[in-house]
Amino acid sequence: MCILLLSTVHPDYHLILLSNRDEFLDRPTASLDWWTHPPTNTKVLSARDLLRPEQGTWLGVNEHGKLGVLTNFREEDVQKISGDRSRGQMVKDYLTSRYGTVEEFVEAMIEEGSQKGVGGFSLVCGDLRVRSGEEGVGRMAIVSNRIGKSAANDKAGPDWILEKGSVETEGLSNSVFLEPWPKVNEGTKYLEEVLRDSQKAGRSQEELVESLFEILSRDNLPPEPTIQDLRDSIFVRIFPVPWTVPADTTASGCADDETLRKPAETPIRLYGTRQQSVILVDKQGQITFIERTLWDEYGNALPKDQRDRTFQLAF
């Protein structure tokens, strides 16, 4: 997933989350659905990457309301891109962990060094359950194995966002949290505008959801985009990527880069925004999770009646 936007601005929702996953269209992937983690018997709702043996995910919610989201970090040094473990395992670790709070998980993750041995990533994790008598979901942690250039980001430990009761909009892409790409700044601006306009107009949840998918579909790319241009556009339309391009082709951040190092049957692969997701947590604590898949593995647009998978959870 290559952009993540979160907001507590809309008064009818504790949290609204939007994400785009930019990826090679032929990467084997299981659609959004429930699955069970055998060692802990934990039930998780997520899509899954079927290429790596870990079968991790970039975005998921478990049966207890834990939320985990991953973005890759755009590496300048090609040698640092991939690791021995899949980045998607980081989300899986949180959603199936034995720790009761996000604070306990993050502390253990840092102490145990489980963020090592993988390529650059940022993990957003938190709890979507709304506790009785409390306003809003719990705060969320952003844990990364990369640091930025700013002194404020040169520290150990996570960044914390969406403190309980706050009214804020945050975003993350394939840079460190405190050094956002232009598309993150654009996305947070448009998200706040849409949420405020929706509330004033009294739009239904269905109308709001379509407005959120419109944000995820904003395309600022030039006719022939370069890797650098992907920093500027929330949506990445499909474009061909030669197999001869070095692993830095994954600069937009969601591919698990070792796929580029394998022999190719064809000289070209298609890359772009493949899945879009929206999660709503309403004032009653009900979670609506929608995944929209835009293309099949050959770059054919999916019919509208085959694109969306919707699940609702209550705790």
Rank of each mutant, 00 (worst) to 15 (best):
V209F: 03
L178C: 04
D197G: 03
S198I: 04
A151E: 12
R131S: 07
D296H: 04
P158L: 10
V137H: 00
Q286K: 14
T249E: 05
K92I: 12
E207A: 13
L302Y: 13
I279E: 01
V61Y: 00
A141G: 08
S211L: 03
P225E: 03
E224A: 14
S122Y: 12
E192P: 06
E179I: 15
R292M: 06
T169R: 05
S46W: 07
E258M: 01
E103T: 13
L280F: 07
T244R: 04
D33A: 12
A141C: 06
F239I: 09
G113W: 10
Y13D: 01
K262L: 08
E63D: 03
I16Y: 00
E112T: 14
N41M: 08
E210W: 15
E193S: 13
G187Y: 06
S211C: 04
K304Q: 07
V281I: 04
L6N: 01
V176T: 11
S132I: 01
S175P: 12
L162C: 11
R203L: 14
D22H: 10
T71E: 10
F105M: 09
A151S: 13
E210D: 07
E214S: 13
H14C: 11
L59D: 01
F315S: 14
R309I: 12
K164Q: 12
F213Y: 09
S217F: 08
S97E: 02
